[in-house]
Design a protein around this nucleic acid. Structure first.
Lengths: 245, 245
DNA sequence: CGTTGCGTTGAATAAGGTCAAATAGAGTGG
DNA sequence: CCACTCTATTTGACCTTATTCAACGCAACG
């Protein structure tokens, strides 16, 4: 296992939070430029993760958080009997690893779905510095809280929506996240397989495929393998709930 | 709405974290007695919440966390179209309100399922003090992280288990939490209705009822309305996954 | 140009949902 | 204390949805 192989020190690369286009989505969000400079020192190194490789595995010792610099990840939890469940998809600017803080061991596994890069944030140093920089402390707490809220949203989806609603909600969520990162919200490539989508949504891959086909018939989206073009946002939103209004 | 009516200052009641039997489950966990004393000052007041009353509602402004002193709560999120989903049940020692940190507004609602009492922890003061007391900072981060991990566990349940497995997992989870609080793990009263259980588990109340009946036939549990007696823990565990092993 | 993995589609089946009716308690007012 | 209400729960019959199993198509790749 070459799990920790490609680690690059940050300064050698002359790139930092201060100049990172993602800082508005990430940990330095809302900090003064002075403070951001301190956060720069926090981010010790970067790590490349090849498509299909694992950033960390459930059970691994926890030591750092990771900020996604580029690429795309899935997180998954394993049940005792071997079944697994995709619990999220993660893109640039998002923080990974918070599942490990509670027990010092990671509770889920993170796998890259395309060649990716993360910033390594040693957690003890984050705690140390966030105790000094009020804004950093706040932002870190905000991020953890949002993760909780996000998970509750997924619980709502898994607990009370039907297959079509789930898929519609999934596409709209992706769309919005691409938009927030400056990509087209209506035209994008899925990085994950039908099976991974199905696992995330609590349905089978065949059902995902059927729903895609149905949406295509209904001229809501255009699906060509992994490429998605959203044709009717309003129509999709209409499916996720507010049917009658 | 008398939402904030019964607030009692803590010192008047001469009860504090230092003397609280729940401190090993709660925020002061792992602190020195000196530090616990500082946390005592943090907890400004207590609030009683009658059965059926709301601690806070989705959309309410966020200002404090709440430590459950006694009683039983459910948390629920609402979808745009009015459906709701129970996202958790909460008992003594647990911290509520972390969903509000990210946006300054609560994302879910908390309702008492029996007469209950919470300690009010003003969040700005928690941030302030936790910046000074390293152990408190750590414990708070641990608690948030555990909440994330807990939610991932629920996602696994909702995404990949069948009705019987869900109910078995639910009963075992409750059992374990009662045990951790010194109550019988095999003999307890449900505080929630079948409908609330069903909402939490992503199944209908009739299904919950049928599964209970089936478990009873199989001599796994004894169900008398709200009273549960677990007869065969191993059998229940066998249902939640590791069928074949 | 066959192999391999991923995706689509169809038919049969099972799981759980829906609707409806019967029952059981808990609490209330007489 | 008893009859009465109200709500929660149980159970049955039927129906819908999604799963399962299987076959086939397609695209990338050696």
């Amino acid at each position: 296992m070459a799990a920790t192989a490609p680690v690059i020190t940050l300064h050698a690369l002359k790139s930092s939070c201060s100049s990172c286009s993602l800082r508005e989505l990430c940990l330095p969000m809302g900090l003064t430029s002075e403070e951001v400079e301190q956060v720069d020192h926090l981010v010790a190194a970067r790590r490349r993760v090849r498509s299909g490789a694992t950033l960390y595995r459930a059970g691994d010792a926890f030591g750092s958080l990771y900020a996604v610099r580029s690429g795309f990840f899935k997180s998954m939890v394993l049940s005792d009997d071997g079944r697994d469940q995709v619990t999220g998809f993660h893109m640039a600017g998002e923080i990974l690893g918070m599942d490990g803080i509670g027990t010092e061991k990671h509770a889920c596994s993170i796998v890259a779905l395309e060649d990716s890069e993360v910033c390594i944030i040693p957690f003890p140093r984050l705690e140390e510095i966030s105790a000094k920089i009020r804004g950093l402390q706040r932002q870190f707490h905000r991020l953890m809280s949002r993760e909780i809220v996000r998970d509750q949203g997924v619980m709502l989806l898994l607990g009370s929506m039907r297959a079509e609603e789930r898929v519609a909600a999934f596409l709209l969520n992706l769309s919005q996240r691409f938009l927030a990162r400056g990509y087209s919200p209506s035209d994008f490539n899925l990085r994950m397989t039908r099976e991974e989508i199905g696992s995330y949504l609590g349905i089978k891959l065949e059902t995902v495929s059927r729903v895609f086909s149905k949406f295509q018939e209904g001229r809501l989206v255009e699906v060509k393998q992994k490429h998605i073009r959203i044709l009717d946002v309003v129509g999709l939103k209409g499916l996720t709930g507010k049917e009658a209004c």
